[in-house]
Amino acid sequence: MQDLLDNRFDSEEAAAVHRIGAVSRLAGVPVTTLRTWEQRYSAFAPAKTSGRHRLYRDADVIKARLLRQLAESGQGIGGIAHLPIQHLQQLLGTAQEPTAAALAPARRVAAVIVGAATAARFNAPGWRDHDLDGALHVRQVFVDLEEAAAGNDTARGGGEGETGILLVRLNTVHSRTYGQLMAAIERQRVQRVIVLYNYGPPALVEALRNAGLMVRREPVPDAELAELIRSVVLLDAAAAFPAAAGALIPRRRYSEASLAQVAASPSNVVCECPRHIAEIIGQLVSFEEYSEQCLNDTTEDARLHAYLRSVAGSARVLFEHALQRAARHGGIALAEDAAGP
Rank of each mutant, 00 (worst) to 15 (best):
M1K: 13
Q2I: 12
D3H: 06
D6K: 14
N7I: 06
N7L: 15
N7C: 08
S11G: 11
E12N: 15
V17F: 00
R19T: 14
S24W: 01
S24E: 02
R25L: 11
L26E: 15
L26Y: 00
V29W: 03
P30N: 10
P30W: 11
P30Q: 09
V31A: 06
T33C: 11
R35C: 05
W37F: 07
W37A: 03
Q39S: 09
A45W: 05
A47C: 10
G51S: 12
G51M: 15
H53F: 12
R54I: 02
R54H: 04
A59K: 04
D60N: 07
V61F: 09
I62L: 09
K63R: 13
R65F: 05
L66I: 15
R68V: 06
L70V: 06
A71M: 08
G78L: 14
G78A: 13
G79D: 13
P84D: 10
H87N: 10
T94V: 15
A95K: 12
A95L: 14
E97L: 15
A104M: 11
P105L: 05
R108Y: 00
A110H: 10
A110I: 02
A110V: 04
A110S: 08
T118Q: 10
A119F: 04
R121G: 04
P125R: 00
G126A: 07
G126Q: 08
G126C: 08
W127P: 14
D131I: 02
L132A: 02
D133K: 09
D133C: 11
G134I: 00
H137G: 03
H137L: 04
F142D: 07
E147Q: 11
E147F: 14
A149G: 10
A150R: 05
G151W: 01
G151S: 07
G157A: 09
E160K: 14
G164Y: 00
L167I: 01
R169T: 15
V173S: 07
H174E: 08
T177N: 01
L181K: 03
M182P: 12
V190Q: 05
Q191R: 15
R192D: 11
V195A: 03
V195Q: 02
Y199T: 09
L204T: 05
A207H: 06
A211K: 02
G212Y: 14
G212I: 07
V215W: 14
V220I: 14
A223T: 12
A223C: 05
A223L: 04
E224V: 12
I229V: 08
V232R: 13
L235A: 12
A239E: 01
A239M: 01
A240R: 13
A240L: 08
A245L: 03
A245F: 05
L248I: 06
L248M: 11
R251M: 03
Y254W: 13
V262E: 01
C271S: 15
E272P: 08
I280S: 02
G282W: 06
C294E: 15
C294I: 12
L295H: 15
D297F: 15
D301V: 04
A302V: 07
R303K: 06
L308D: 01
L308F: 01
V311E: 04
A312K: 10
R316H: 03
L318S: 08
E320K: 03
A327Q: 07
A327H: 11
H329R: 10
L334E: 03
L334T: 02
A335P: 14
A338G: 03
A339G: 09
